[in-house]
Structure formats: C-alpha cells, structure tokens
C-alpha cells in the first residue's frame, strides 16, 4: 500500500508547523508506522534541529532535485526509533530551487517505502507553500487561538479547497487553559466554528516543547508532557482511532508516582 502524504501548513509563521511535523513523525513511528518527515522550508531549515539530527546531514532535498545524489542517500535515519527518517531542506538555497512537480516526483518515490510522509511547509502562501501542498493527500492546518493566526488559517483553508486538496483538518496549538477559563483566550469551539473545519488536535502551551527544541528531543519521544501526549492523540486519530477531545491536564500526584514507579521498574 502506498504511503499517505500529510502536509502541515498555517499561513502565519511561528505557530508550530515544524514542532508538529517532528512530533507527529515521532508519534506515528512510535506506533510502528514507517515515517519520513520532509522539510519543505528551503533556505530556513529547522526540522533537522528540532529533531536533533543536524549533525548527520550529508545531502538535502535540493541535491536530490539537482541529481547530485540519490533520494535514499539524502535520508537521515533517526536512531531513536526503528522507522523514522528525515529528508532535510537545503539551507543555502531559496524556494525557487524546487518546484511543485519536483515535490510530487520525490514524494511519489518515497510513498513506495513509507506509510506516512509528513511535510513541513514554510509560512506564507507563495511558492514554498505551493511546493509543500503539491504532493499532499491530506492537509493539516495548524493555528494558535489568536486573531491573526486564525485569519491566516482561514485564508489557507480557502486556498487548499481551491487546489482541491481539502477538506483540511485543524490543529489548535499553544492553548492556555487558564486564559481560556478567564475568558481571555478564544475557546477551541469558537475557533473551530469560525474556520468551519474538522478538528484533529488540541495542543496546550507547554514549556516542555521549548526544552525539547533546546535539546533536539521532540516531546512525543516520551509521554511525560501534556504536549507530547496531545501529539500522540493526533497520531492515533490519523490511524483511525476514535480518541475523544478531553481537555488535557497535568497528572496528579498519584499518577506521577505510579508512572515513576512503573518506568523505574522497566529500566531495571
């Protein structure tokens, strides 16, 4: 069976596309899927550092397009999981080095060996975005519960529909439950209603995401953080499981104790 191409895009910059790509790649691979994450943000590559693989890159996407290497040679294996690979973007080139038809061709080749291709789109709605959605079977829109991010998401959702890549599904990232509770952040239901799309994930604001970016170990590698668990829930939904959208909360003292005891036991 040929792999599914999921493109993660947002319109607005900095809302969490690369974070989501890295973590969905990890979460899907943890569940036994063969996964390749593709960095389509040419000239501003980030996925490699988010995943802690920056020191292992030899070739990149542009080398493949310009036939300086074979596709297989450009793939970097993530040794932490059995079947997780990265196809890095070029850092010193710009978006014009690759066209939509190149992306389609490369993804077509990758489909044969993987269950999932997760494509990290650059911000904006120009060529880089066009490149990222060209090979997509499904598009996941990521946004934050803020006016500008939601507005840009709406614009992108319209473009995805016009390209007949829809219907896109929605991830709302950086939710602060405390602010929602006091009315100073939009409810997720309001965002979903405004954008009129299907929801596939809710990710809380979580300091663990920042420390994970510092160390190059995506939060989804463990289930110790709320954000990590939220990404695993998205992966389960992508695999067809019916996972309810319950608000995520910190584990209580006993849950933490239990988990501590359990992992200690495993490691021995």
């Amino acid at each position: 069976m040929a792999g599914r191409v999921l493109t993660i895009t947002s319109g607005k910059g900095g809302v969490g596309k690369t974070t989501a790509t890295a973590n969905l790649g990890v979460a899907l691979a943890t569940r036994g899927q063969r996964v390749v994450v593709v960095d389509a943000d040419i000239g501003l590559r980030n996925l490699d550092v988010m995943m802690g693989l920056e020191n292992r890159i030899v070739y990149d996407l542009v080398d493949v397009v310009e036939e300086r290497c074979r596709l297989r040679q450009a793939l970097v294996r993530d040794k932490r999981l059995s079947e997780l690979y990265l196809l890095p973007a070029a850092q010193t080139r710009d978006k014009t080095a690759v066209g939509p038809e190149d992306m389609v061709r490369i993804c077509e080749e990758l489909r044969a060996s993987f269950d999932f291709l997760v494509v990290d789109s650059p911000a904006g709605i120009e060529q880089g975005f066009r490149n990222a959605i060209a090979p997509a079977d499904e598009v996941l829109i990521i946004t934050n519960p803020e006016v500008a991010a939601v507005r840009d998401a709406d614009r992108v959702i319209g473009l995805i529909e016009a390209e007949e890549k829809g219907p896109a599904r929605l991830i709302i990232n950086r939710i602060k439950p405390e602010m929602v509770r006091r009315g100073d952040m939009m409810e997720t239901a309001a965002v979903v209603e405004l954008l009129a799309v299907e929801l596939i994930g809710l990710i809380p604001e979580d300091e663990a995401v920042i420390t994970a970016a510092n160390t190059g170990r995506p939060v989804a590698l463990s289930d110790n953080s709320l954000a990590g668990r939220a990404f695993h829930n998205i992966a389960r939904r992508l695999l067809g499981e019916d996972v309810p959208f319950v608000p995520l909360r910190e584990a209580g003292f006993f849950e933490r104790l239990l988990r501590f005891v359990r992992t200690e036991g495993e490691e021995r």
Partner: peptide
C-alpha cells in the same frame, strides 16, 4: 466590557466574512 476572548471572536467573525 466583554472578555478579550469574546472580542477576538467577534472581530474574527467580521474579518473572515469580508476576507472570504
């Protein structure tokens, strides 16, 4: 004054209608 989350939603309702 309504809470700012409510203001955000109201503003977005109008902005999205005009954008679309």
């Amino acid at each position: 004054q309504p809470p700012s989350g409510e203001i955000a939603r109201e503003r977005l309702r109008l902005v999205l209608a005009h954008d679309r």
